[in-house]
Design a binder for these strands. Sequence first.
DNA 1: CGCAAAACTGTGAATTATTCACAACAAATG
DNA 2: CATTTGTTGTGAATAATTCACAGTTTTGCG
Lengths: 252, 252
Amino acid sequence: MKERQEAIKRYIERKSDVTLSELAKEFSDWSEMTIRRDLEFLEQRRFLIRTKRGARIMPTSYEVSVGMYGEREKRNCDLKQEIAAKAAALVETDISMYLDAGSTAMMLARELPDRNLIITTSAPNIGIEIVLKKKNPTVILLGGTLQRKTISISGLNVLDQLKTLNIDTAFMCASGYTEATGFSVGGQHECVLKRAVIASARRVIMMMDSSKLNSILPFTFAQLSDIDTFITDSKAPESIKAAFRAAGVHVI
Amino acid sequence: MKERQEAIKRYIERKSDVTLSELAKEFSDWSEMTIRRDLEFLEQRRFLIRTKRGARIMPTSYEVSVGMYGEREKRNCDLKQEIAAKAAALVETDISMYLDAGSTAMMLARELPDRNLIITTSAPNIGIEIVLKKKNPTVILLGGTLQRKTISISGLNVLDQLKTLNIDTAFMCASGYTEATGFSVGGQHECVLKRAVIASARRVIMMMDSSKLNSILPFTFAQLSDIDTFITDSKAPESIKAAFRAAGVHVI
DNA sequence: CGCAAAACTGTGAATTATTCACAACAAATG
DNA sequence: CATTTGTTGTGAATAATTCACAGTTTTGCG
């Protein structure tokens, strides 16, 4: 595959739905016809499907996760992407890592290097995504009841399952944070699971886009002192970043 | 949603990729324009995406499973569909059932009534499919290592997890059957898991399309005496069906 | 190094698909 | 029963896609 085709594929993967004219503008070094032919090429290899005026990524499990939350999730796609790229840089080879459920985690799954890794996750859609797109990582899915809203696992014995796994680095997501309440999420099941993961991981990396800062959700699962590294996007206010640093958290 | 729109949706779900002219021929009572408008309607509701000359189902996890095996799987789609419809008729409310991994099982997942059910499965893609498309069933995913080829779970403690679950009816798939070898599959992990499920289920229903009869795969996981019901398609030879009946198996 | 073959790219015309506006019709409402 | 609302079909206008061809670059091989 050519460099241009790779670039087009990456572009569409990021945007998930593009028009031909949008592509033509982005890749203005080439003619519309060439891009058209590239799309045909990529479609044959099942990377995407062509639509009326352009193309769309071939949704594997990715769309499963964003499809439901819909527009809200898509809107901050670029922020999440930025965070995921930063997080992927922290992934070392041959470590055992935990990947949380959530759309930021899904982005990280896509950015992950295709290397020897052991990835434990409670999100089956993320597990599938990794296993389909990468050759090398080993994916371990937690077992239990599959939650409709979050597409993640919960259950009585997830905690037991965690006990048998040694997690080096945990990449976690949160839906809300304030100084007073700490990191919070909307579901009780998730909350319990996240706490257990954080307790057992050697290193905890929290990923959160700036739109979620200063919002509170029902269940708090962690405080600043629980995390080692905080990854956010460039739109996050300096004041919060400074406060995190003052608490001994490594902010990226 | 109108009846016609439902019908179009079902048609596209079955075919997975259709052209407008194909739809116009199938639904010749209506004009092309009306069908076009229906497709637009269905696209807005994320049931499908429109392509250049028609439409394609919105692949959730379904495409994940067939996408890899590709054409081979698609070819017997109609047979599997027939089997899945028969199997769905056997599903009772409020029971605990096991759904095997495999494309026939995925078809069954789509045909399942939207009622109170507890469905245990080793296939996360099937679990996601159910949870996204139906409101009522509870899905329990087994935990463990996610296998790349089959998109199913295996691991040391799947057997332990099964012990804590009481399965009433198990819907199983096989990749091969001969009288001498019994029901067989290609992977050792799957084999072990299937055996355990069959041993613990009160009732075992085997689903298998006729193209797989008289083929042998490396690992045998069941004999005729292990199963209660056998579901196959209309192309299956009478001789085999008669032999199954003679062995006390209920053949549908 | 140089030539021939193959593969890739851009252009514009021909084809095809999609949208749009409007009229006819049916169903619902008061 | 008239009016409104929604649905459907028709054909023209628009837009997108394909096709064929020519120019260009790359590749392979003597």
